[in-house]
Structures are given as structure tokens and as C-alpha cells.
Amino acid sequence: MKTLFSLLFAIVFTTISFSQEKILFHGKIANRNGDVIYIKDNKTIVKEIKLNKEGAFNDSFETKAGMYQMFDGVEYAELYLKPGYDLDLKMDAAQFDESIVFSGNGAKENNYLAQSTLLDAKINFEALLKSNEQDFMKQTNEMKAADVARLEKAKLDPGFVALQKQEGEAKIGELQQYYTMTQANKKLNNAVAPNFNYENHDGSKTSLESLKGKYVYIDVWATWCGPCRGEIPFLQKVEEKYKGKNIAFVSISVDVDKDHDKWKAFVTDKGLGGIQLFADKNWTSDFIKSFNINSIPRFILIDPKGNVLDADAARPSNPKLSEQLDSLLQ
């Protein structure tokens, strides 16, 4: 499985090449997750490769040199492809990242990527993000320097090295930016939560003030947001678990005005529970801006007195949310 590092900061870089020389790609996948693997350039499918019933495949295609992803329907692996490469892959999809081994022309670069994924998995990002600013900057800069040293020592394709250095710079930069954002969020804790008074799905209006006396778990989302929709089944389970407890579950949509009817239909069609609200000015709503929300989903926990308990609360899919609510709602 991919780490937070990969999920939060994966950035695709490509270089331009006009060569039409084909890339040969073959191999065998044990315990495959499906009958097809996809070679993708971000969201674009470059090649669809079919596996036989033994999990073997043998194909060729043309594309420019650069970074790509191999997707088997469940998991992703990074690839570096270049015209003229002749890659053979052996892996067990049941141990996806751990089992990837390439041989042939281009194997060194792609085995390097596979090993990088395993190294990333060993980083304790939760502890890193909890460290003070001085320690955090020191550790992340050391990580960047270690990655560059490892890359230069490996003596790999110059184009690959250049792309990896760019991606490494971007990943560390994004991680440092994320740290700054989380530190800013922490400063909001224990402050009085700003009020809102938004349109309720039932046609009335609901304010945060009206919910005083209860814990309030707020989900900021939008109908177009894939990760937001992915949290819905987990949120429904949490709502059911704490039904009848002293907590209100509030979902605030930041859909734009033209999607108002889409929001209403989505809530109805999906049978969404809790208190469903529509922010008055989407991203520029006062409540949204006060929490510096620029990406979603975002979850906020308010205490019964109307104070911010956690400005960046755990997602419903995170077991830590139930642990926190259990301790508060005993």
C-alpha cells in the first residue's frame, strides 16, 4: 500500500522525446487483481495490457520518455519508460510493492523506483508532522539530501535522474507546506468557533449557535470531490455508531451556486444522514475562510461550548476518530 508521502505528494513529470522506438513490456504477475494492467500518464491511459490466465503478458507500445504509473485495478506502481526499453516484470500482487522486480533494459531505473516506495513506507510521517518546526525542517532537509546522494550513487539514466531530483524537490516542498498548514490549524484549537447560518437540505437554515450543548463534527465537502465521496460510507457508519449520543454530524457543501440542485439531488439519492448544509459563498464563505480551508475533505470537531476542539480532525475512515469520540462521549 502507498504511504501518506506518496498519496499526498505524488507529482508526475515528463520529458519530451520524439523517438518512435517501441517500449517492450512483458512479465508475469502472481495473484493478480484483474485481467488487465494499465500504463497511465497521470489520468491518461497510455496502454491497456491484457494478462493471460496465468498472469503473464507480452506487449509493446510507443510513448515519450518520462514518468508513468502502472495500475492493476487496485494498486499503483511508478514506472520510468523510455523508447528502446525492454522490461520484464515479476511480481506478486498480494505483496504488491514488496515483490516488484524488473530485469532487462531499463530495469535499474525501475527497480530504483520500487525500492524508493519501500523506503518511503518506513518513514513515520505521523511522528514527523508532530515534531517542532526546527526538528521538522532539519529532518526533511536531511531526507532530501539523502535521496539526492542515493540517486547520484546509483549511476542511472541522466533523464531519469533529472526527473527524480525535480520530483524529490517538489515532494519535500509539498511536505513542508503541509506541515506549515497543519501548524496553523493547531493554533485554531481552543478558540471560539465562528458561527455559520447555512441553508439546510430541508429548506430551513441551521446555525452553529443552535447546536451548542452538543459536540459537532463537521465535514466540509463537495459533490465533485472523489476523496469526499470515498469518506461517505465511513461517515455513515460513524453516524450510526453514535446515534442518540450528544453529538451532531454536520456536512457543509462548498459546491458553487450553479450546482445547488446537483447537491440537493445527491444528498437525496445517496440517502446522506446528519445535517446537510450548503455554504452561502462556497470557498469564500466566512466560516470556510476562517479555518483556512483550501482543500477537501476537511473535518472539524467543535465542543459543546462552541470552542474548536480539533481544527483538523481525523477522517471517518481513520480509527482514531472513534477513539476520540469514545473518550468524549462516555
Score class of each variant (00 low, 15 high):
M1S: 10
T3Y: 02
T3V: 03
S6H: 15
S6I: 15
L8K: 13
A10C: 09
A10K: 15
A10Y: 13
T14R: 14
S19L: 08
Q20P: 11
I23V: 15
G34Y: 08
K40P: 06
I49V: 06
K50H: 13
A56M: 10
N58L: 15
N58Y: 12
F61T: 01
T63Q: 07
K64R: 13
G66V: 14
M67N: 05
Q69H: 14
Q69S: 13
D72C: 10
E75P: 03
K82H: 05
L89F: 04
K90H: 08
K90S: 12
A94N: 07
D97Y: 15
E98V: 05
I100Y: 03
V101T: 09
N105M: 15
G106P: 02
N111L: 00
L113K: 10
S116Q: 15
S116A: 15
L119H: 09
D120M: 07
A121E: 15
I123W: 12
I123A: 15
N124G: 10
L129W: 03
L129P: 00
S131M: 14
M143K: 09
M143L: 13
K144V: 11
D147L: 08
D147A: 12
R150C: 04
L151C: 00
E152R: 13
E152K: 15
K153N: 11
F160S: 01
L163Q: 12
K171S: 04
I172M: 04
E174Y: 00
E174A: 00
L175Y: 01
Q177D: 14
Y178T: 07
Y179C: 05
T182K: 09
N185I: 09
F196G: 00
E199Q: 11
G203E: 05
K205Q: 00
T206C: 02
S210N: 04
L211D: 12
L211C: 09
L211P: 12
V216N: 04
Y217D: 13
D219N: 00
W221E: 01
W224Q: 02
C225I: 00
P227W: 02
R229N: 09
I232H: 10
I232F: 11
F234I: 03
V238F: 02
V238H: 05
I247Y: 06
I247F: 03
F249H: 11
S253K: 04
V254I: 08
D255T: 06
K262A: 14
W263V: 03
W263K: 08
V267S: 01
T268C: 03
G271I: 06
G273A: 09
I275D: 01
L277E: 02
F278G: 03
F278T: 07
K281V: 14
T284D: 14
D286L: 10
I288A: 04
I300M: 03
I300N: 02
I302A: 07
K305P: 06
N307I: 15
N307G: 10
L309H: 11
D310Y: 02
D310P: 06
D310Q: 11
A311V: 08
D312W: 06
A314D: 13
E323R: 13
L328C: 04
